[in-house]
Amino acid sequence: MSPTAFLAAAAAVAVAVFVAATTVGNEYVYFAGYTVLQYIVLATAWNILGGYTGYVNFGSAGFFAIGAYTTVVIYKTLQLPLLVAIPLCGLTTAILGLGMGYLTLRLRGVFFAIATLAMAIVLHTLIVNWPFVGGARGVYIIRPRDVAFFDGYMQFLFAVMLALAVIAVWIARLVERSRLGRGLAAIRDDELAAECAGVPTLKLKLISTTLSGFLMGVAGAPFPYYVTYVDPNGAFNLAYAVNSIAMPLIGGMTSWAGPLIGAILLGTLQQVATVTISSALSLLIVGVLLVLFVTLAPNGLVGLFAALSQRRRHG
């Protein structure tokens, strides 16, 4: 399928999802659906660096939160509409990703991972100490009263996140099948051998962190309007970091479908568990699933399916 055809197909699926959601007509569907879609963007973004390039980013929550807080800053200063703010949020976190990569990617991969972990904490510290965006106490965001073409603001946010998810998955698939994607895969398999095959590894890794950072910021951009009250503990929630790693790992990391499947399954599971049991327990389930998959099914669900169908063909 060509990229354009894929984009058209994905858009058609998105429209179908949107129509289905409107027929349910329940505000909660938008609310829960938004969260799952947000995880699709986040997991897909993480996978560009983690799955395609082989570098672990533990700081997804930091990127997500900086995306959200960029919206807060824009809200308090320029008051631009959300749709204009989203690319600016992405730009901010793209620069963050580039800087992060530039500082640490010359070192061994584990140092990059450790640095991202520490970076999320430092960004948290910075936001807590910045009164303009509410500091530790947080800040309230007032949603516009109504929005054109949509039946309420929540429906609009749902549609926005749906569009972002389509774009994110489309970009991931585009990267995966491009010259860039093949270079990234070579880096993931063996960085020195890649360099010796003529792959400009540092440049490609920087592109990867920048693109991944961009999409993470985009995922966080509508967040303030979704929750209407942003505080550091909510925006920097460790759940974002865990989910963005767990979803691709459980789904499968080598293709765009993995994080998509992982996000839909885990995201829905968490929504159900949060409603029926508790949010803490639903997070515990994610943690346990992450450890189980990593130790027992290292290639995720996509890998399991592939192994199963291969066995059927041969047996």
Binding site: G50, G54, Y55, V56, F58, G109, V110, A113, L238, A241, V242, I245, A246, L249, A280, L283, L284, V286, G287, V288, L290, V291, V294, T295, P298
Partner: peptide, 16 residues
């Protein structure tokens, strides 16, 4: 990569 995720998962399970 996966062993990093393993310890991250352990950390998260312990905390939760």
């Amino acid at each position: 990569l996966r062993s990093l995720a393993f310890f991250f998962g352990l950390m998260f399970i312990t905390e939760v």
